[in-house]
């Protein structure tokens, strides 16, 4: 069960003892995040790293949790594999797929300058456009030796580095801050 962080641990950075919407640490002020704010996706990550990818890769790469695993645990559990047909899947909005000539069930590749991962195309009309979803945790033995994390880049948000309280406030990779595109590589 998930519980709130213990008060004494949180007290290190929540000085008022309450929920704080305003932060005045130097890093927050410099990033313009003293108050909650919306920032355009990829502006400070992918586009800052390499401006040429703007327009080249048009899908946000999301690696979500799967119903059938706890991260990568149970990746080799054959009952779980049976429940998901032993098939890593790439979830796409039908419009994005149609633009790329991808049909339901095709073998597709998500790729960017850093790497690639392959899976069976699943067209989900309930999924927003501009997003490609891959379920995290598949071992590379199911991915022709590829890794879904080959596409991500270890972007770390500066505000994450202000404090170091393990498990509560610590630097972590912004996994979903990655661009990719999709292409069909085969039929199933």
């Amino acid at each position: 069960m998930s519980r709130p962080a213990p008060l004494e641990a949180a007290a290190k950075f929540i000085k008022s003892g309450r929920i704080e919407f305003y932060r005045e640490e130097e890093t927050f002020r410099r990033s313009g995040e003293s108050l909650p704010t919306h920032k355009r996706p990829f502006a400070e990550s992918e586009y800052a790293l390499n401006p040429s990818v703007r327009g080249k890769y048009r899908l946000a790469y999301i690696t979500r949790n799967s119903l059938y695993r706890i991260h990568s645990n149970h990746s080799n559990n054959l009952w779980m594999n049976e429940l998901e047909d032993y098939r890593p899947k790439v979830f796409l909005n039908p419009t994005d797929a149609a633009e790329r000539g991808i049909k339901d069930g095709d073998l597709v590749e998500l790729y960017n300058d850093r790497g690639r991962v392959r899976g069976q195309a699943v067209l989900d009309p309930g999924q927003g456009p501009g997003i490609a979803i891959f379920e995290q945790g598949w071992w590379s033995r199911y991915l022709e030796g590829d890794s879904y994390n080959a596409l991500t880049y270890p972007f770390i948000k500066p505000t994450n580095e202000v404090y170091f309280v393990p498990g509560i406030w610590a630097p972590n990779t912004a996994w979903n801050e990655a661009l990719c595109d999709a292409r069909k590589v085969g039929e199933r």
Partner: peptide, 16 residues
């Protein structure tokens, strides 16, 4: 639906 937890086409839209 061909896939579990993916909406299926239904009369007048989708169903899940």
């Amino acid at each position: 639906s061909k896939y579990h937890q993916i909406p299926a086409e239904a009369e007048g839209g989708f169903s899940m």
